[in-house]
Amino acid sequence: MIKVENISKQFNGFLALDDISFEIKEHEVVGLLGPNGAGKTTTLRILTGFFNPTLGQVKYDDLDIIDDDIKIKQKIGYLPENNPLYDELKVKEYLVYAAQMHDLAKPKIKEAVNKVIETCGLKEKQNQEISKLSKGYKQRVGLAQALIHNPEILILDEPTEGLDPNQRIEIRDLIKKIGQEKTVILSSHVLSEVEATCNRVLIINQGKIVASGTPAELKSQTTSQTKILLKVEGPQDKIVEELKKLEGVERIISAQKENNLITLEIETDSTKELRKSIVHLIIDNGWELYEISKQEKSLEDIFVKLTKQT
């Protein structure tokens, strides 16, 4: 549906995007992940036609972003970075204005406005001035604006930035709900965010795509070890010694004793499931097991690894 071919973007001699290509299919929820300044916002601005690429092409089906920008803009709902809003307008006024700008027919405007007010939970706030709203509600207004013309594609630039944890969850749920029937592209530098909402991730660093795939794929690509966390009561030296003998245990990262409880971090071969044999070992020796957990390498580790290489 969206095809990005070899786009580069140069700002006064600074190469913000360096030959990026990717494709997005219908109903995908794609996360653009990268540190600040990696080129996420620039990519999204090119996708929305706000910037033109210095080189390369962006196609929406058969439409070209430079030649058919109006037609493409009608298909896109966009929430820019930092959610700029016409603060002095009331929520409803603003949404009506947005609807008029998208060529909605007059009788349909009211219907569309009421629908997005409903979807985004803005009913009680619809007659308030936007400047008086809390950040979470402003974010909803921004989303409502992006949804007003029922676009096929939703482009969201850091949609949960600057929100408190509760608001983050609300917005995330809202995006998930919307994502069921639309193609969504969102950017973020918060990994848990992307992991929770997206079914595909593009990791971007210094203007290049350094990895892409589902969150699970990305994890398996870069991990060969798994960490196991263990809390056990018993003689410390003996436990460490016995654990080291187990096949698949590569290293005991740390062992700490607090009161009678020993906390151990064990690095193991990720191709083997070791939890069972560890539990057996502990029970057979008559020690007390308090806790055992496998720690997946998080997307965070992958992110740090990929974006620090250069």
Binding site: R45, I70, K73, Y78, P84, D87, A98, D103
Partner: peptide, 14 residues
């Protein structure tokens, strides 16, 4: 300054 231009010019207007 408020960046609302980015919203305005990504609406379907010329």
């Amino acid at each position: 300054k408020l960046n609302t231009a980015e919203v305005l010019f990504t609406w379907s207007i010329k």
